[in-house]
């Protein structure tokens, strides 16, 4: 069972570490003045949010190898496929959350930064992103807690995560207890995250 927890934590960790920056990058693409970049990002978000995550995981792990010509290069191990699916999917959600944060910034902030001589990059790094964080923390916290529970979906592409082990233990021991133990582990993770985000929100209360 501890190996199962390892997989669950690993998927969670990789997804958070890569989807948050990717989501921020997508936000800047989506709000850019370049119509191609903006349109492509909107389409990406449309697909990722509009189809089931499980379908996306199946598509990446079982589907891609059947693509003509390039398919044979796209076969990958279960864990890599799972990580990629989760990162791509969550980046789309984070992109929309961050976009909301970006839109909430008073245009006067950009003007003040401009007349003080800040470059666009300096404005983004020093003025805009710190203010965005305050706005996006609550929805990001929510999404992160959803991710903890969503990791259970990787069972469907055959990764032996926490849910997988608890299910086989239930079968082999003829007891419901392993499910309860799994539930406790998920609860510990979500509670820890809730506390962490509460702390962050306090730090960004200005």
């Amino acid at each position: 069972m501890s190996r199962g927890i390892g997989y669950t934590l690993a998927i969670f960790f990789f997804t958070i570490v890569f989807s948050l920056p990717l989501g921020l990058l997508l936000t800047f693409f989506e709000t850019s003045k370049n119509p191609v970049l903006c349109g492509a990002t909107k389409f990406y978000v449309f697909i990722m949010r509009g189809t089931p995550l499980m379908l996306q995981l199946f598509f990446i792990y079982y589907g891609l190898p059947f693509l003509p010509v390039i398919g044979k290069y796209l076969a990958m191990d279960r864990f890599a496929a799972g990580c990629i699916g989760f990162i791509l999917n969550y980046a789309a959600y984070f992109c929309e959350i961050f976009r909301g944060g970006l839109l909430s910034i008073d245009p006067g902030q950009y003007e003040a930064a401009r007349v003080l001589g800040f470059s666009r990059a300096q404005t983004t790094a020093k003025i805009i992103i710190p203010q965005m964080i305050k706005v996006v923390l609550p929805p990001t916290s929510n999404e992160t807690i959803t991710l903890v529970k969503d990791t259970a979906l990787i069972t469907t592409i055959g990764i032996t995560d926490l849910l997988h082990y608890s299910k086989s233990l239930v079968n082999s021991t003829q007891s419901v207890l392993p499910y309860a133990v799994a539930a406790v582990f998920y609860l510990i993770m979500t509670t820890g995250l809730t506390l962490l985000f509460n702390k962050l929100e306090k730090k960004f209360r200005f």
């Binding site: 008073d106 006067g108 003040a112 007349v115 203010q131 960004f204």
Partner: peptide, 19 residues
């Protein structure tokens, strides 16, 4: 930007950086 850096502006709504 080099020229504008030598000008300053004060806004109606202050536009202080709240963070």
């Amino acid at each position: 930007r080099r020229i504008l850096r030598r000008m300053g502006m004060v806004f109606q709504h202050f536009n202080l950086f709240p963070h």
